[in-house]
């Protein structure tokens, strides 16, 4: 379970990017996170993958209260979270294979297991021939697929993806969305930050709307609150 209680966040005493956020994500649930540019999607994702601590409020991640976690707890919790960063954040000196293998190596998996799992996944995302290529020699779409493969290779309990289909053609985009669906069916809680209306309409999942640092779900009550706020 993931729970945000009265969470606010700002960067170095600047204005609040996220204001008094409250929501709960049930284990194995699937959500789309959308909102206009600058609404705080990336900041919210960063709190979800424990890249930052909230300025105030309480975050419970995978049933662990992050306020009372030790440094070691943070690392072991992060190993259960797969993240597709908006700018991919690949290590440019490592091959596609080594980038995808990174989370498994951090978890000290045997090299034999790493070889078979990574090769299989890279084949699946259409990068079987580019295993030994360095990210700078690949296209944006290929780099994005490496980032996605790295996020899902460990079958995480929570998958966070920031615009995961932004640089992909529609066929590959839908293919990867099916991969996320499959992972979700296996119990992975999934949060996809996207602007892509087609994808949100095609896959009928819960929608979280971020607007001006506040969050609204697609429930009628929340939408009414948002409309009233927009008017006044």
């Amino acid at each position: 379970m993931i729970k945000f209680e009265n969470v606010s966040f700002n960067y170095e005493n600047g204005p609040d990017i996220l204001k008094n956020i409250n929501f709960t994500l049930a284990p194995g649930s699937y959500h789309f996170l959308s909102g206009p540019s600058g609404s705080g999607k990336t900041s919210l994702m960063s709190l979800l993958y424990l890249g930052h601590r909230p300025t105030s409020g309480r975050i419970t991640m995978l049933s662990q209260d992050t306020k009372h976690m030790t440094r070691e707890d943070f690392f072991s919790l992060r190993q259960k979270i797969g993240v597709v960063f908006q700018n991919y954040r690949l290590l440019n000196h490592l091959t596609a294979f080594d980038n995808v293998a990174l989370p498994l190596r951090i978890q000290n998996k045997p090299e034999r297991e790493i070889k078979s799992n990574v090769s299989e996944l890279l084949d699946w995302v259409g990068l079987g021939d580019a295993q030994n290529s360095l990210p700078p020699t690949l296209s944006g779409g290929q780099q994005q697929r490496i980032a996605i493969a790295r996020a899902v290779i460990t079958r995480p309990k929570l998958l966070l993806a920031d615009e995961p289909t932004g640089n992909l053609d529609s066929e590959m985009g839908y293919r990867l969305m099916r991969l996320f669906e499959q992972l979700n069916k296996m119990g992975t809680t999934t949060v996809i930050a996207t602007h892509n209306q087609d994808i949100m309409e095609r896959y009928k999942h819960s929608k979280l709307l971020l607007d001006n640092g506040s969050i609204y779900s697609n429930s009628k009550k929340d939408l009414l609150i948002k409309t009233i706020r927009d008017v006044y």
Binding site: F75, I81, I106, Q107
Partner: peptide, 8 residues
Amino acid sequence: LLHLIGAP
């Protein structure tokens, strides 16, 4: 990045 992926 290594920290975010869970490297202690």
